[in-house]
Design a binder for these strands. Structure first.
Lengths: 394, 394
DNA sequence: CTGAAAGCGCTTACAG
DNA sequence: CTGAAAGCGCTTACAG
């Protein structure tokens, strides 16, 4: 049988750790325990059979093969500018490392250097295409600095105190990027930031948490732009279906709308706004509620703004079900431009937010040292993507 | 100023590593270098100011505080059944650890134990809601075993040889779950599986790679179900818009369709199938192509199957643009049931695949030792979700 | 400039 | 059953 040996020991009566979870002995890396004899004898990586040392190539192997000390090998391989060995020696070390296929042991580096090369990304909505863009931006920037991202889930972290501690206090990661707007976790941001450099992304929170940096896009500018677009099309009464009313994100988005309306001597009427979940279901529920209020009459807004892209998708579906034709009967425009928008029927007008950059900047901020305070990203600025769901009034 | 010290050293003239990327000195965990004096003196974690040892609590601190050796502390804390200290002693150790807030240093554990507690998840489509479900399943199962997931991107890994080596050969993770169906990476699966326990998920590949286990859902059963649903509605001529023709996934899905059709004495006509990308754009292009073939005539299928959910979304949008009304003019049904489906107008009939379980099983397989071969998941079986996009023919 | 040595925090044969 | 010691692979003050 090819492949790896069974690693979860057969006795499934496996011991439990203190949290009661099963302690997996599971995976081990390729290298078996090194035989003491082995490391004494012959050169590293004896190619043809009888070689004593198996396992991955270590720094010591490279140093020996290159005829230098481990210290020098380490310095040269890490590009330490202080290492001024003869250029030829340096070249030999580098070449030897390459030839032997040397890859530094990450665990040893971590233990020694007190950094893991890992950043925790803690989200609470892995299904949303919205945050994926952010995630992608973060991943790319992390990769640029040879960092990897470790995935965490808010609810799980809150439910599993052990996982929480391992991630936050176990020096499992060098820093945490967490998605804000989750009431319960938001309350623990202070603790987290005390343990680890922390950046809260996207959903701004009320509190300025000690030490945690907040990074989010210019929400106000985005909805202002959206609203101006609608006003430009002749709409005078504009409604809103959004997320939780008191959430900071909603408040900022409303602020943009209200500002733009005020500039045109208009207002956002109380009766024209609905608050619920930040999801397609929320959008559907919001429309149902509004239609109910309207009672079939014509006394209603000519346009609706969707608090986010998911809400917008739900709204479009619900409006169709109520036989309201978009944009003839009602225009719809959403916050967030995802790939789905242009494939909907009608395609969905939306304003894009620089979520990719939020991810990028979050990582950069972490790497540069998180210092608290808020970064509002204005570059790139929100961009309006006019599509089929919005049309001139009348 | 509150927060963490600047960690990326000011001199941005930072040295480059061998790959030419900037070597980030970036993040460090809280603990500064321990003062030699500190670890000698007083007890750990002296609460009130003058305490010499700062930094996280170590096993040694717990052992000292509990009055036992590090060895015993380690054994008890890890639930080693061989440790049969007095129950009272054990309790004291556990209690002390809790009181001091001891969290084991992951790097030290990794170095010593040769396992990282990390599984690499390598995907090539972070924007697809389809794979998110898989990702979520994997994450949950990993968490159950105290494992975390590290995110990798196929294209990046292929472009950046250094990142590839660090992830695959640097003992950065204990195993790899990679999304198959990416021609180029598929070709390297053999190498990867030689370096690390490897599971290829979801998109089956042609080759049975030495040592790598494949895990995927029962594709054939899924499209068979979908097709039977359409046949049951009276459809006799059914078309297909799918991904790359030669991809294993497409071939399996076609097999299901052909099988179901054959059972009803029907066939999948060459002219009724289009192959392109596994994306909404692909779905749109496919419909455009078909409509072009039909040239406005009525000689066309009465139903179309979408190779996956993204393709289906693109198809729905495209059909609307061609003024073809679904399901009146044409029924549409897709593979994969995502949350979007029920919010589309019309809502999209689809067959669900157990992607969550694919993720779960992938992790379990890895932890149990990957042995090559294929797992086709039949539990839970594919389920048909009939919605607005499919109707009786005529 | 370079090498020898110490040490990061942990676990596990090895003796007692 | 438990403790002292070795060692996982690396880097970095510290001497030379």
């Amino acid at each position: 049988m090819t492949g790896w040996p069974p690693l979860l020991p057969a006795r499934h009566s496996g011991h439990m750790d203190s949290s009661g979870r099963q302690a997996t002995e599971g995976l081990r890396t390729a290298a078996g325990p090194r035989t003491a004899a082995g490391s004494q004898a012959a050169g590293p990586r004896s190619t043809a059979g009888a070689g004593p040392r198996s396992g991955p190539v270590r720094l010591a192997d490279v140093a020996e093969a290159a005829g230098v000390s481990r210290a020098l090998a380490s310095r040269v391989l890490n590009g330490d500018p202080a290492a001024r060995a003869a250029a030829e020696t340096k070249a030999r070390i580098v070449e030897t490392a390459a030839r032997l296929g040397y890859v530094p042991n990450v665990a040893a580096k971590s233990l020694r250097g007190n950094r893991t090369g890992l950043i925790g990304l803690v989200v609470h909505d892995l299904s949303s295409p919205i945050y994926l863009e952010l995630m992608r931006g973060a991943r790319e920037e992390a990769a640029r600095h040879s960092y990897f991202l470790v995935l965490g889930d808010v609810d799980e972290l809150l439910a599993d105190e052990d996982a929480y501690r391992i991630l936050i206090s176990g020096r499992r990661v060098d820093g945490i990027i967490m998605q804000g707007g989750h009431g319960e976790l938001d309350r623990r941001v202070g603790d987290i930031a005390r343990a680890l450099p922390t950046v809260v992304v996207n959903a701004p929170t009320d509190v300025e948490h000690e030490g945690a940096t907040q990074v989010y896009p210019d929400e106000v500018a985005a909805t202002r732009l959206l609203t101006e677009h609608l006003i430009g099309l002749g709409h005078r009464r504009i409604g809103l279906v959004s997320g939780p009313r008191q959430s900071m994100t909603n408040r900022l988005r409303e602020e943009g709308i209200v500002t733009a309306l005020a500039a045109a001597d208009l207002e956002l009427r109380e009766e024209d706004r609905v608050h619920g979940e930040w999801s397609a279901d929320g959008g559907r529920a919001g429309v149902d509620q509004l239609v109910d209020r309207w009672g079939g009459g014509a006394d209603r807004p000519s346009a609706l703004i969707a608090g986010n892209s998911l809400v917008g998708i739900g709204m479009l579906g619900a409006l169709a079900r109520h036989d309201l034709v978009v944009p003839r009967d009602l225009s719809v425009a959403a916050v967030h431009d995802t790939w789905i928008n242009e494939h909907l029927a009608p395609s969905l007008t939306a304003v894009s937010l620089p979520l990719h950059e939020v991810g990028t900047v979050a990582v950069r901020t972490l790497l540069a040292g998180s210092h608290g305070g808020r970064h509002i990203l204005s570059d790139p600025p929100p961009v309006l993507h006019g599509r089929g769901s919005t049309g001139a009034v009348g």
